[in-house]
Design a protein around this nucleic acid. Structure first.
Lengths: 297, 297
DNA sequence: GATCATGATACCGATCCGGTATGAATTGAA
DNA sequence: TTCAATTCATACCGGATCGGTATCATGATC
């Protein structure tokens, strides 16, 4: 059977057109080279070189085979290298699901560092609503997710990589704008805008608990999915809202942000399925940990 | 050293995930397969499959290596097939130079038949003025040429594949239009349009000889390179011309074609350099010969 | 706990590989 | 013309590798 080694021998010979020198380059002696080339030609049923005892010259078929053999050898070696890279997570693919809010916090820096450190890995980023993320990771839809901390979920590993306080956002002209620091009690009776329970349960619960701690139940007038939409609706004087601090960076006009007394802290975690063997995952998690603090805005 | 055979073994194993069945498919027994896979993993330094004695499952690196190995094996086999095809001229490339006039006679049918019969051959067609064609073939610029018969040229092989008579072309209203058959003598004194000597010496000489045979020297009023330009100029009443019969097919208006008494016969040949080893050449020459007669218009 | 299935290991004969020595053919110079 | 040199092919040998048979180790299943 024809062998990749015979191809290597042939390429060396075709590039030198001299059995002796080609053998030297291959670190073998000349007779085995002659024998392997003869065997290759016999097995192919094709004359690759004309030898007239003073020089060797490629036939047309030999010229063609030289081109093809070079490509085959390159692919072969690359395949072996790829296997080694893949084992250490330096080659492959990884899919990350993230809540859209992460696009304003940890995601940009994390992805930039990761693709720089692991250029061979194909990174698939998919933004989804936070509610279904844990389930998607457990089902294998994503290798990892960036989301609000869901607490303990069976089979799901999480690690906190970022945290930020919620703050109050109001339209300009709102009575509370005068306060440099707003307390929970002052929110009683204010119409709130927030995310639906099924979209971002963690965030919603944090707000609810904050209000309950002050002795009242929040009244949500409007529910929309995206944080930036919430801020826009606040600008339209449709209510006030508790949003992560980082939303201030959006720079939307006609709104004012104020810190809250004993503000609820919202945690971002990276989450992955216990037992996920994708070798590209540990390096990703390592980058996520390493970014703690750096990714703060 | 890692070997293409080990890749084949691995692919068979990865596709069955069962050492026994994979060995059966490979027509070997199970122990050598186990040994070769172990050797492959050792040489790669990579675990390709996890075996827990009840089933084997690919690792991530193994999955990657499977894809790569499939591609390598396909390329490898294709390279061997290509070598065999190339030897018989069924794969490769061939460059053909042709005088533009051939585009109205033998070339269309010839190229159609050739590419149908040898779909693996890349055919390069280049139209050039006939004058330099023999030289271009001798210098290796073309593997073959379609041209007027240049007679004997050292180192050049030729074979006649087509012949046609010259005829007279005149503008409508010319005195000779009344004649159903024109003799050479009647051309004496007529202003002629023809090709320059360096562009198509064979054609030019044939016309000159024809006139000399009738006892006069032709007077060329205009010289242009292309036959169809000649006919166009005839239509403009700038002179008359002797052109190959096939030019009548162009269907240019305001001109009349008339046969000549003892008309000069112009031969098309296929020409190639003696000793050209391009394996795609003999099949091309065979098609050129086979087309004799068929390519007549 | 016995049986069955599966892959790994041990060993053996045949084959293949590469090395050394040598032969055959052609070239170039004396 | 002849001799030396170069170059590739052939013959033969020891070692490595391959595949085959027999057998073992390990779980899973009943």
């Amino acid at each position: 059977m024809i062998d990749i080694r015979q191809m290597r021998y042939f390429v060396a010979l075709a590039e030198t057109l001299h059995f002796g020198r080609a053998a030297e380059r291959l670190h073998i002696s000349q007779p085995p080279l002659s024998r392997q080339i003869a065997a290759l030609e016999a097995e192919l049923g094709v004359t690759l070189l004309e030898r007239n005892s003073r020089q060797a010259v490629l036939t047309y078929a030999g010229r063609r085979f030289l081109e093809d053999a070079r490509a085959v050898i390159a692919n072969f070696d690359q395949a072996c290298r790829n296997a080694r890279l893949a084992e250490h997570g330096d080659l492959g693919e990884i899919s990350i699901g993230f809540m859209m809010h992460a696009a304003y916090t940890v995601l940009p820096g994390l992805t930039r560092r990761y693709i720089n450190a692991h250029p061979g890995v194909h990174l698939e980023l998919r933004e989804v609503v936070p509610g279904g993320l844990a389930d998607a990771v457990l089902k294998g839809r994503f290798d990892a997710a960036i989301m609000f901390n869901p607490g303990f979920v069976r089979g799901l590993e999480t690690e906190i990589i970022h945290h930020e306080e919620l703050c109050l956002v109001m339209p300009v002209g709102h009575p509370l704008v005068g306060q440099p620091l707003v307390s929970a009690k002052q929110l009683d009776g204010e119409p709130l805008i927030g995310v639906p329970m099924d979209v971002a349960p963690v965030l919603r619960e944090a707000i609810t608990n904050y209000c309950h701690g002050a002795g009242f139940a929040p009244s949500f007038r409007l529910e929309v999915e995206l944080q930036q939409t919430i801020v826009s609706l606040v600008a339209e004087k449709l209510g006030i809202a508790l949003v992560p601090q980082s939303m201030e960076r959006l720079g939307l006009p006609d709104v004012v942000f104020r810190p809250l007394e004993n503000a609820p802290v919202i945690q971002h975690v990276v989450a992955w399925r216990l037992g996920n063997l994708n070798p590209a995952l540990p390096p990703f998690l390592a980058e996520a940990r390493a970014g703690q603090g750096k990714d703060r805005v």
